[in-house]
Amino acid sequence: MNSPAVLFQMEGTSLAYQGREVLRDIRLRVSPGEKVALLGASGAGKSTLLRQLRLQQATQVAWCPQQPGLVPMLSVYHNIYMGRLDVIPWWKNLANLVYPNPVARTAIAAIASQLGIGDQLFTSADRLSGGQQSRVSLGRALYQRRPVFMGDEPVSALDERQADQLLGLMMQQHETAVVALHDVALAMRHCTRIVGLEHGRIQLDCPVSETSEQALLAFYPQ
């Protein structure tokens, strides 16, 4: 596989979380261009799988974890800027703390207004609502400008309409995506492929066209 025909690959892998095996015999390949939704009840192992997948292409992945992990004291601007800390020289990063880099500021202001938080660019993250914090987290992922988006329930703190709109934005901005979701309708609308986890295994792996909302709800026992 010398071409990037396959980005992520697992061939019968078992995965553990905090020492306990949660996923067994995982076989999964993700190719560029695919938009994969991971579905499953909480505790099914979605986060563990995502974490493992991310490590396979750590430099290609724009990552949006379940806990946004924002730095409370820093502004929205700086929290988004942090997506590119690793590619910018450290002294520029330090200078940016004291005085925002004009180029970065323009780019980040654009991202922030796309996400609907343009007004709060210089508000500290601890003064934001939960929904706004998710947007900052998405903003950081966008600012990373990487081909693959990987999110762990990235829009669960947003209302239905906003979740729909922002997930669409993320899909449009990234060539490939692997996203853990619990909203079946969102998954159907924005993804090309559904992977369902249950009892520590992949129980379903098919294109969106081959399944239905009704069938997918089976992953969420009442």
């Binding site: 974490r51 991310r54 750590a58 992945v61 990552w63 974890p65 806990q67 992990g69 730095v71 820093l74 700086h78 942090m82 800390l85 690793d86 450290w90 990063n93 330090l94 703390l97």
Partner: peptide, 15 residues
Amino acid sequence: RLREDAATGINRHFY
């Protein structure tokens, strides 16, 4: 607790 993809070194210290 930091994010898994948190920066390292001096960037981690300051940001």
